[in-house]
Amino acid sequence: MIRHLSRQQIVQYDALLEHCRKNSARVDYLFTPAVSLLYLLGLVEYLPKADSFEWRRRPTK
Rank of each mutant, 00 (worst) to 15 (best):
V35Q: 00
R3G: 03
D14W: 02
R7M: 01
F31W: 04
V35R: 00
S24W: 06
E18D: 13
L38I: 06
S6R: 08
Y13C: 07
S24D: 13
L16V: 11
H4R: 08
Q9D: 02
L38M: 14
K49M: 10
S52Q: 02
V11C: 08
L17Y: 09
L16H: 08
L41K: 11
L17E: 04
R3Y: 01
L30Q: 13
K22V: 15
I2W: 00
L40R: 13
T60D: 06
H19L: 06
Y13K: 11
T60K: 10
K61S: 15
I10R: 05
T60H: 04
R3W: 02
E45F: 01
M1E: 04
G42R: 03
H4L: 11
Q12R: 13
L17V: 07
A25M: 06
I10T: 13
Q8W: 00
S52T: 06
A50R: 11
T32I: 12
R56V: 05
L38P: 05
S24V: 10
K61F: 13
F53T: 03
F31T: 08
S36M: 04
V11W: 02
L30S: 15
D28Y: 09
M1F: 11
G42H: 08
R7C: 00
R21M: 13
Q8E: 07
S24I: 08
M1H: 02
M1S: 13
S6Q: 12
Y13S: 07
H4Y: 13
L47K: 07
M1A: 12
V44L: 09
E45I: 05
Y46V: 12
F53R: 05
V27P: 01
R57F: 07
D51E: 14
R56F: 05
I2S: 04
S36V: 09
L43T: 03
E54H: 09
G42E: 05
P33R: 02
R57P: 09
S52I: 04
K22S: 13
R56P: 05
Y39M: 10
C20E: 10
D51K: 14
F53W: 07
V11N: 03
L17D: 00
S52V: 02
N23P: 03
V35I: 15
R7Q: 04
M1I: 12
Q9L: 05
W55M: 01
P33M: 05
V35G: 00
W55D: 00
R7E: 03
S36R: 11
T60P: 06
L38Q: 05
E18V: 08
G42M: 07
A50D: 10
V11H: 00
G42V: 08
L40M: 11
F31D: 04
N23H: 14
V44I: 15
L5M: 07
T32P: 02
N23F: 09
Y29L: 15
S24Y: 10
T60G: 04
A50E: 14
Y46K: 11
S24K: 14
R57I: 02
Q12T: 04
S24G: 12
L40K: 11
T32R: 11
G42W: 02
E18S: 14
M1V: 14
Y39F: 12
S52Y: 01
R57S: 10
Q8N: 14
S36K: 06
R26W: 08
F53Y: 14
D51A: 12
V35P: 01
I2N: 02
V44D: 02
P33N: 03
I10C: 01
